[in-house]
């Protein structure tokens, strides 16, 4: 910003306008954690994501809602660099996902849809392994692992191999793995699926805590009550298209319905979980 101010000071009136405008853009960009422009993804003849334009601000908890096959996971996979878009760009903290992959990887944490943990390692060993993969030192890994195991209610089972964990415990550990390196941005792809209500509420508390710490979170879910409870803003995606975007309460009011579930039904004419 200081550099731009200097430009502002030493240029003619005409040029001043140009740099002032550019400065505004830079200010706006620095405030957005994620910027998606004209994003398209085509698998053979199927368009999974169609002309998606979206910005998520720093510290925002954004919900990406939609039924199975709507394009949520494809979008998340593009955002974290797992798949290449057919066209369009994605920037994370100003870094292009395709060109600055390594920098983006250090900034993000991802809880993928699969319960991806090593079954032959204990919960603690899984966390320690990924701490090392993120380049953390031993002390930081130990502190962070203990913290996350406590938060996720896994401290008592930390030394058991995860093959012996219940489904809910595995999901919670999978979520903890996404936060081992204390990322600035977290992509959580249906983190509470197949969880019992108690575990789900524990996870909600954890997600809220991360948001309060200023982390940017993109959450995909087809649980409308989850989105309504957690998200600052939601985007409803169907057949790869963003069909609604806004604050949950505003979307509900705008559509004259009682909740987000009914918003979805009104917009698409079908239930969000009917394809399950």
């Amino acid at each position: 910003m200081r550099l731009q101010f200097l430009f502002f000071k030493f240029t003619s009136k005409h040029e001043t306008k140009f740099f002032a405008a550019k400065s505004l853009t830079v200010i706006y960009m620095s405030e957005s954690a994620i910027k998606i422009q004209n994003l398209n993804k085509k698998f053979e003849d199927k368009l999974a994501v169609e002309n998606l334009n979206l910005e998520v601000a720093k510290g925002e908890l954004f919900g990406l809602l939609g039924p199975n096959g709507a394009g949520k996971t494809t979008t998340i996979n593009i955002l974290c660099g797992l798949i290449k878009p057919t066209s369009g760009t994605v920037q994370i903290h100003g870094f292009d996902v395709q060109n600055d992959t390594q920098k983006v990887k250090e900034l993000i944490g991802v809880c993928i849809q699969e319960t991806a943990i090593y079954p032959y390692l204990s919960g603690k060993e899984n966390l320690e392994l990924f701490g090392k993969l993120y380049g953390m030192n031993k002390k930081a890994i130990k502190e962070r692992s203990n913290l996350l195991l406590n938060k996720m209610g896994l401290a008592d089972d930390a030394k058991r191999v995860t093959a012996k964990y219940s489904g809910g415990m595995k999901r919670r550990l999978s979520l903890a793995l996404a936060f081992i390196h204390d990322p600035q941005i977290a992509f959580l792809d249906e983190p509470t699926v197949a969880m019992d209500p108690q575990s789900r509420h524990a996870v909600w508390d954890f997600i809220k805590e991360q948001k309060n710490k200023g982390k940017t979170i993109v959450l995909t879910t087809h649980y409308m009550e989850e989105a309504q409870e957690l998200c600052d803003r939601v985007g409803i995606i169907d057949h790869g298209k963003l069909i609604a975007l806004g604050v949950p309460s505003e979307l509900i009011a705008k559509n004259h319905v009682k909740n987000l579930e009914e918003v979805f039904i009104q917009l698409t004419g079908r239930n969000i979980r009917e394809e399950l």
């Binding site: 974290c80 660099g81 797992l82 390594q102 990887k105 250090e106 993000i108 991802v110 993928i112 849809q113 699969e114 319960t115 991806a116 943990i117 090593y118 079954p119 990924f130 993969l133 993120y134 380049g135 793995l177």
Partner: peptide, 11 residues
């Protein structure tokens, strides 16, 4: 089981 994906997401 998605571990390869998780490793690819890491640096």
């Amino acid at each position: 089981n998605g571990m390869m994906k998780r490793i690819r997401i890491s640096p």
